[in-house]
Amino acid sequence: MSTSAAASASAVGIESKIRARGLNAWYGVFHALKGITLEIPARRVTSVIGPSGCGKSTLLRCLNRMNDTIRSFRAEGELLLDGADILRETDLVRLRKRVGMVFQRPNPFPLSVFENVAYGPRIHGERNRGRLAEIVERSLAATGLWAELRDRLAENALALSAEQQQRLCISRLLAVGPEVLLMDEPCSALDPVATRRVEELMQELKRDYTIVIVTHNMQQAARASDNCGFMWLGELKEFDETGTIFTRPKDPQTEGYVTGRFG
């Protein structure tokens, strides 16, 4: 585990991938995000913790504009991906290619394993069968699924175990060549062993990708992330290296939460 090394490396001068300043968001009249300001470092795992309804999923879904489908949703402020404004991005396809998302419940499409992974490249215009096969192999290999499934590529993805399904969803994302992986409680539907494997996978993936994970599970945040933010009623109460958040929190509410006194 490289948590401490990463934490020490995230000092000044580390390249930040996503930067938010005064980010506000509303669902109708409900103020869901209140003046969020943070910097998410590149090629690190950043976790966001907090009680249910605190706005952590909303924050995550701002990063790839997934909330655009919700009519009453509105976001304001500055949210930059490599310096480019996410909220004013007009090319959602390009944005979502760069910022992919893994969901709480594994949601492979009811297609074959191969088609699941090939789906992204296909919709982005890749037609060459050989190149698709190559992408599928590379993407499955990156999550360790290739060894398990190389003979079962034609099988329906819904026949896989929950953990395999979740890794397949990650492979599916990798196939479109993203830079940022958003994970919305990716392990909440998995058993402890499977959770462990997904966390290990995240450690491997952070060499190439920036990962943002929303989780309920504080042990997971402590184990798997380099930086951690604590959210409470739409505000980002504290954002720091994970070690600091869990050992020397500055905010009393953060301390209350991580020590299990509420939440």
């Binding site: 997934m66 396809v93 979502r96 290619k97 992919g100 969901f103 499409f109 789906y119």
Partner: peptide
């Protein structure tokens, strides 16, 4: 969740409807 998965990969509504 199927639609979300597809949108998150950058698919548009038509691709999502037709392929997923």
């Amino acid at each position: 969740v199927f639609r979300d998965g597809s949108f998150a990969l950058g698919a548009n509504r038509w691709q999502t409807a037709w392929r997923v």
